[in-house]
């Protein structure tokens, strides 16, 4: 067992983990941050996407010890300081960008990573960026719409309700 320390959503967090402990397990089981969902556990589905030093990664495919000393961001850290939804989360609600909600934490974290690098992505760029985030409910249309809306773009012309 090894001591691991990182900053999670701006607060320092530490624990004792095995070499094989995944970042997703550390966040969920030791820190209680169960918003990071584990869907497939094979790095296909993207429900576990978190930010490590500002970059989107799949927390189920990264060892906790690899994140030692890193700045980690999870869905729990996305809301505004007063607890209200941030612009991406609000857009998902406004545009019904979810049904069952299981994939949503990963979708929001991926969307945040995309908009950081590309503040006004095209619909095609959004769809391309979400290649590693699988949603089995929505058919993606409203997720894409929500992300476009979150970037301040007009979404009235986007098809499919």
């Amino acid at each position: 067992m090894t001591q691991v320390s990182m900053t999670v959503n701006g607060k320092s967090a530490s624990g004792t983990v095995e070499g094989r402990t995944l970042l997703s397990q550390f966040l969920r089981d030791q820190l209680g941050l169960t918003g990071t969902h584990v869907g497939c556990d094979t790095s296909q589905c993207g429900a576990c996407v978190v930010h490590v030093n500002g970059e989107a990664v799949k927390a189920c495919t990264m060892l906790a010890l690899e994140a030692d000393g890193a700045e980690v961001g999870t869905i729990e850290g996305q809301a505004n300081a007063d607890g209200s939804l941030n612009v991406i989360q609000q857009a998902f609600q406004d545009h019904h960008g979810l049904q069952c909600g299981f994939c949503t934490p990963g979708m929001v974290m991926s969307a945040a990573a995309l908009l950081k690098d590309n503040p006004t992505p095209t619909e095609a760029e959004i769809r391309d960026y979400l290649e590693g985030n699988i949603c089995r409910c929505t058919g993606y249309h409203n997720i894409v719409k929500a992300i476009m809306a979150a970037s301040g773009q007009d979404v009235s012309g986007i098809a499919a309700e």
């Binding site: 790095s43 989107a56 990664v57 495919t61 991926s110 590693g132 985030n133």
Partner: peptide, 8 residues
Amino acid sequence: GDPAVRNR
């Protein structure tokens, strides 16, 4: 892969 895979 996908963006998250490319980051690792």
